[in-house]
Amino acid sequence: MTTVMLVEDSATMLMSLQSILTKAGYDVETAGHGQEALDKLGKGVKPNLIISDVNMPQMDGITFTREARKAPGMRFTPILMLTTESDQAKRTEAKNAGATGWLVKPVGPDQLLGVIKQVLPEI
C-alpha cells in the first residue's frame, strides 16, 4: 500500500487531508510538526510521499525537508509543501531545501490527488 506522511499542526487540516487520502486508498501516517515527522523517519517509517505544512511549531516544514533529505532512503521521496504561505522567497527556500512542489491552501480533493499522482513514482 502507498503510504503518505502528513506533517501538519492543524488538527482540522490533518482530519480533512487524512479523510481525502484514506478514501483514495492511501495509507496515512501523521505528524504534528517537523521534529515529530523526523523522529518517525528515524524510527523506520518509510512513506512513499510526504505532504508538509510550512509554518509549524518546533520545526518548520522547510527545515524538516532539508533534514529529511539526509535520512536514509529519503533522497528521492517526493515532498510537497502545503501551506497558506504565499511568499516567493519561502517558495524558493523550500525548493532549495529539496521540496518537490508547492501547494497553496485550501486545496480541493481532486487537485490534491492529481498532484500526488503526478509526483508519485509507479509502485
Binding site: S10, T12, M13, S16, S19, I20, K23, V107, L112
Partner: peptide
Amino acid sequence: LTVETAGAVGHAQFQDISRQ
C-alpha cells in the same frame, strides 16, 4: 455521493486558514 462528501471535507480546511 461520496465524491460530494469528499469535496465538503476539503472545504473544512477553511478553519485552519481562519485560525492563522
